[in-house]
């Protein structure tokens, strides 16, 4: 069982989360060349080993997270909110 340590809710089984795919994928500007869009929509690095990926805590706080997970061992080495501003906020003392 994968366990994801949600920054808000604590460690939960991955059944509470929805997978959102490779976090390296960023959609280009609407006017970007077609090739950039084809790449973002269809092409994936699909690494064997460390993978930064999106998960949503859909049965919890519904926050989107960036999870660092190994695709061979399934070991999770990092979880952070997908919005970096939220990440910084969480690090403030007293939060």
């Amino acid at each position: 069982m994968l366990r994801i340590n949600c920054p808000f809710c604590g460690e939960r089984d991955h059944g509470e989360f929805t997978y959102g795919g490779d976090a390296a994928v960023v959609y280009p500007a609407l006017g970007a060349p077609l090739d950039a869009w084809i790449d973002a929509v269809y092409v994936r690095t699909n690494p064997k080993g460390p993978h930064r990926e999106r998960w949503q805590h859909s049965l919890g706080c519904r926050l989107w997270l960036i999870v660092e997970r190994d695709t061979i061992t399934h070991a999770i080495t990092g979880v952070a909110p997908a919005r970096s501003a939220l990440s910084a906020l969480l690090k403030e003392p007293g939060r």
Binding site: M1, D13, Y19, T71, I72, H74
Partner: peptide, 13 residues
């Protein structure tokens, strides 16, 4: 199992 993996082993859910 819904997430990227090369592990050849699945999970309990």
């Amino acid at each position: 199992d819904m997430y990227n993996s090369y592990a050849q082993r699945g999970n309990l859910p």
